[in-house]
Write a protein that binds this DNA or RNA. Structure first.
Lengths: 345, 345
DNA sequence: GTGAAAGCGCTAACAT
DNA sequence: ATGTTAGCGCTTTCAC
């Protein structure tokens, strides 16, 4: 089409070769630091000078076509507004950078799963990290048929062979133990969506920790089904409406904890005086809520990084489920305290 | 290298052509919906069947190489953890999707600006949307020399010809007017970084609105230099340490407003009773802080969308600075109220 | 030490 | 209504 003004005509290998008076293949080998290339120092210098002078940049498409590698991985997440993904992205970008690869991060194609297949099959990406929702078996089958690696992160996806998850069970247990140690005996749980195995594991850890502490598990104290501000608020309202509300609650993630805090406030419930609140995931936000949120720090960047390493075939992430265990660590802030009947007033 | 088990050998145009008993060029034209192609209904059906049967997906690299188009735009932001970017990304992704393009969102290459040039020059992306920091003139020159479009979003970058910004001046003015109407006469401003023209415009709007209200502009009431939780907290502490603190403050963005609220609380200052706080940018978070933050909603997704449209050459975004004006709208919540001396106590 | 040549998979102008 | 053809810019094996 129209030549943009100021646009130098595309510089190719051939141009560099001509200027440096060598063959294109030599330039290619210099550009790619081919070890097996034996070349006179001065010839190499001539080539490098030519590259600099012409501002040569190898054409990505041509290189991709030839090598059948795009040097790009895809990372798809449900929602950029959820701050936990910022952490996962950070770790994944870092790892990709170290590998000399590009990371293409985007919002999950909720109602266009065929686009994942297309990205793999067309060679646009060499592999996919999915932090997103469940996918239809047919889609997964098609992805696998491309022969390119796919890994899920922060959750398992039925049918996807490899996944990277955190130790959700232990995280929930740590939080519950903290509440128990403060003296709480009625501890509720605002849980994540029914479809999420991560939410299930957190629930499992909660139940187990209750038992370990010799406390009864009361299904009425487990409410909610989501990871958003709204679901958290709604769940807290439900909890407060109960005849005998818990004195402490473990919330499955920070977003819903925000909603829960807001709902508690709206209901005239003081945190932590009337009710303690702890949540899973530690992010900068948590320290700036009111009251500052007690959390369990999870290995979010580490999971992102592991996702990339799994794609490039690191031994540690070969098959099946990998649990990234560190850090899984309690961060005590102001939203948890002893129950009212334990305090001297 | 190693053939992955289960990896069907790559299916190419030629395979489809052979199965459908037509020439490759015909398949290509069918795939691309070439209007000028006249083809028998049954032939087309045969081709489409073959495509489906073989699960053919065009090779992106080959297509890119041939057409010199990658169908990809880049969007680079300073920090995924800053929730305003989630909104910008949303708008940009949406627009890219509508154009049938892919959006490659990533963290700005702070100390590797040459990678922007490389991405453009190598053809990996067809254009760049930069929501990031200032760049060295040499980098900008090199980017422009590639002949590919570059546009800055949410701020101007000296040397980058086109930019999409919000009406920051008006937004600041709206907030100040709100505070004035509540009865405030000493209104402070926690400003953004000195290097940001967006921060400068907000400051300008603040000063202008003070004048319009017949209030004196007191430079001592303008503090801070950043957009983060920490800078906001630090600025609020400075304000509170003054001999005569303001009764209201406009904070330049939500992140620093969070820090400011935390610092106010730590200093025993009640919001809004002792001090009103308003901030620029409305995001879901704002309603879940305590107190819920009064904000000015800004056209964040709209700016993202405009960035993409500018790249594909929409008339409306041809050259220079484009101001996206709507919405710029006051959202009153709980963090602002009448000053203490106006209330009946 | 350096060059020649084939071809990755696709598109589009041109032929038939 | 469909086929022929000439590359796009690069890598890599093999030859000298």
């Amino acid at each position: 089409m129209s030549e943009r003004k100021g646009a130098r005509a595309r510089v190719t290998l051939a141009d560099v070769a001509k200027l440096a008076c060598v063959d294109r293949s030599v330039v290619s080998r210099v550009v790619n630091n081919d070890d097996r290339l034996v070349i006179k120092k001065e010839t190499r210098a001539r080539v490098l000078d030519a590259i600099r002078e012409l501002q040569y940049h190898p054409n990505a498409a041509a290189r991709s076509l030839r090598t059948a590698q795009s040097g790009t991985f895809g990372l798809f997440i449900p929602d950029f507004a959820n701050p936990i993904y910022a952490e996962i992205i950070k770790g994944a970008e870092q790892a990709a950078m170290e590998q000399g690869c590009l990371l293409l991060t985007g919002t999950a194609f909720e109602d266009r799963p065929e686009r994942y297949v297309e990205m793999l099959a067309s060679g646009r990406v060499e592999g996919l990290i999915l932090a997103a929702d469940r996918l239809a078996p047919a889609t997964i089958e098609a992805m696998i048929a491309t022969g390119r690696p796919v890994v899920s992160v922060n959750q398992t996806i039925p049918g996807v062979r490899r996944s990277i998850v955190a130790d959700d069970e232990r995280a929930a247990g740590i939080a519950v133990r903290h509440l128990v140690e403060l003296g709480h005996e009625r501890i509720g749980h605002i849980r994540g969506p029914a479809s999420s195995d991560t939410a299930k594991r957190r629930l499992g850890g909660y139940v187990q920790a209750l038992h370990a502490a010799g406390l009864d598990y009361d299904p009425d104290l487990v409410v909610g089904a989501g990871y958003t501000i709204e679901t958290g608020a709604e769940a807290m309202r439900e909890l407060l409406a109960a005849t005998d509300p818990p004195t402490a609650v473990l919330v499955a993630n920070v977003a819903s904890a925000m909603g829960a805090l807001t709902a508690a406030r709206a209901g005239g419930v003081r945190v932590p005086d009337d009710m303690s609140v702890a949540a899973i995931h530690d992010i900068p936000l948590a320290a700036n809520l009111w009251p500052a949120l007690t959390t369990v720090r999870m290995p979010l960047p580490e999971m992102g990084r592991a996702g990339v390493l799994a794609l490039i075939g690191e031994d540690a992430y070969l098959e099946g489920n990998t649990v990234v265990r560190d850090p899984t660590q309690l961060i005590v802030r102001e939203s948890t305290g002893a129950p009212a009947d334990h305090r001297t007033r």
